[in-house]
Computed example of a mutant assay.
Amino acid sequence: MGSGVARLERPAAGRRQWHRFRTPRMWYRAVARADGCGCALIGTLWVINDSASVQFARTFYTELRTARGTLDTSRSALALHNAIHELRGKFLNTPSLWAAYLHAGA
């Protein structure tokens, strides 16, 4: 069993690539696989604006990075929280840009 983070985000530019995760059933299947491997799964409930998605990813991975420059995936829930908080601060009146993110698994 490994540990890590899998991001299943639905950016607007990649709509065709994410057709497999259109239904909640597909999302739950991915969550179950993530739980079985001991990793965390970060995803979105709907398609996210590309610009907001890039901002989220930058903050998320910055929050995972340790002082040594490695990624500490055990901090994925906190990193998600902080990335959402930052987006919310920038786009308070547009929750569709920050409210879609989910964390599941380890």
Rank of each mutant, 00 (worst) to 15 (best):
K90T: 14
L102G: 06
I84Q: 11
Y101I: 07
L102R: 07
G89A: 02
G38C: 06
Q55D: 14
L80E: 09
L71Q: 02
Q17Y: 13
T59S: 11
N49Q: 00
M26S: 06
A79D: 03
E63T: 10
G69R: 05
F56R: 11
W27H: 14
D35L: 09
R20W: 08
D35K: 05
V31K: 15
A12R: 15
C39A: 08
R65Y: 13
E86T: 02
T70D: 09
A67D: 11
V47D: 13
R68E: 15
L78E: 01
Y61Q: 06
V47Q: 13
R68F: 14
M26C: 04
S74F: 06
F56G: 01
G89V: 09
W46N: 06
D35N: 14
Y28E: 15
F56W: 06
L64W: 05
S53H: 04
S96Y: 07
G89T: 13
R10M: 14
G38D: 13
L8D: 05
S96I: 09
L64A: 03
W27K: 14
M1D: 03
R15E: 04
A99I: 00
P24F: 06
S51K: 02
A83W: 02
C37L: 15
R7Y: 03
T62L: 15
M1H: 02
A100N: 00
D35E: 15
W27A: 15
R33N: 02
R29P: 10
R7P: 03
L71E: 00
I84E: 15
P24C: 07
G2R: 13
P24N: 10
A104L: 12
L71S: 00
F91C: 03
L102F: 03
Q55W: 04
T66F: 06
S96E: 10
H85Y: 07
N49H: 05
D50H: 07
W46S: 01
R75V: 12
P95L: 03
S74Q: 08
A52M: 00
W18E: 12
R29L: 10
G105H: 02
D50S: 09
A100Q: 01
S53V: 05
